[in-house]
Simulated assay, not measured.
Amino acid sequence: MKLIKQGIFMVEISKPFTREEAMQHAIDCTKCRDEEATRKDLDNYSQALEQLERTGSEFHGDSIVALKSEISKLENWLESDALKSGNYPIGIDRLMTELIEWRSVVYAIDETDFNDGLFNKSAFFAQWAVGAVYAINAIIGKMVNQNSQDNSLRKLWNKVYIFIKRDGFADKSEINALTTNFNGERFKNDGSKVILYRNTSIAHNEKNTQPKWSDVDEDLRILTRAWALITSWCSYGLFNSLRCNEVAFMGLEKHFTPEQMNQLYLKRLEYLGRIRAWGMHPIGHNLNPDDIKPLDLNKTYSLFGGNGPTITTHLV
């Protein structure tokens, strides 16, 4: 293991990477690896290969070779003992999208005033609300974990940020700031109320210092920006999309009117617009109303521009 100095911190680098190796490593760490996601990737790659082969191999020879190689890797992975036994980590893309899914729905519910205590009076919905708090805080903890065996966003950032900086993909001062956040006190008990809660209330039963949602969003903005830079830099377009509104709120139709459901949909899109702004602007940038716009309806977006997860949105 190699240590390099970043400011006052010593950052772990498991081995010297080439730029190409770093990009491939970023793809391997971020992509979803379960059977469902693998089969979706396999279908998409196979369709892409068919389209290229129809247009003639003389024009797309390198791309065809690359696609066949990826298809072979996916087929081998589907047959592997590691997949069948669950001996693999969840991809960072899956964890981050789940984190955003949870938070956007909670935001929508909190920002509307017509639920009449549904999430307090009903034991089922109250348990869902508690589960949302636990899931959100637990995933943030996974993303910044310092365990060398974890597939965390922090660990991946420390391995690839040098190449992102060299490529001029973001301002050097911002990359340094993100690296300081990941390796300093920012994501420890004294620097993050979310991590304090995760470590003392979820993982253990020492305290009950639940953070505010504004505390969660402060941490999530940093994670979103780092994730956006990595996924855009390594040029890997994600096929998996965030859920549409109807799926995100499925089951609530019996409790709310169609107009109220539409209000929930719009509030969720408002929060996803905030996520998009966090991913596309430096962490030191003071966002203004023009930066944070709800996602338009009936359109498919690349969440951070260029590459990245997409979301299709529309009203009922």
Rank of each mutant, 00 (worst) to 15 (best):
I230H: 06
E12Y: 08
F119Q: 00
Q149R: 15
A26C: 01
E270F: 04
Y265D: 09
Y161C: 13
K165S: 14
F169M: 13
G279R: 14
I275D: 01
I283L: 07
E20N: 06
R39G: 05
F114T: 06
E174A: 07
I292L: 04
E36D: 06
R54H: 10
K172D: 11
S214M: 14
I71Y: 02
V65E: 11
H60K: 11
D296Y: 13
N286Y: 05
M280H: 04
N262C: 07
D41S: 05
G279L: 05
T300D: 13
N189E: 12
A22M: 10
I90N: 08
N76T: 11
N181Y: 09
S173G: 02
S14P: 15
I100Y: 15
H25V: 07
V216F: 12
I27A: 11
D62A: 09
L118I: 08
Y271A: 07
R274N: 07
L238M: 10
A138T: 13
I109F: 03
F187V: 04
E246A: 15
P289I: 14
I195Q: 01
T30D: 07
V65S: 14
N205S: 11
K212P: 01
H60F: 15
F9A: 02
K40I: 06
V130A: 12
D215G: 04
D167V: 08
V130R: 10
E50L: 09
N115F: 08
V194Y: 00
K73H: 09
A248Q: 14
F9N: 02
L238T: 09
V130K: 14
A226N: 05
N240L: 09
M1C: 02
V65L: 10
N181K: 13
D290E: 12
L297F: 12
L67A: 06
C32Y: 00
Y236G: 05
G308Q: 04
T313H: 04
V216K: 01
R276W: 01
L242D: 04
L315P: 01
C244Q: 15
N189A: 12
G237W: 06
Q210G: 04
N115E: 13
M1Y: 08
H204Q: 06
T209E: 11
R276A: 03
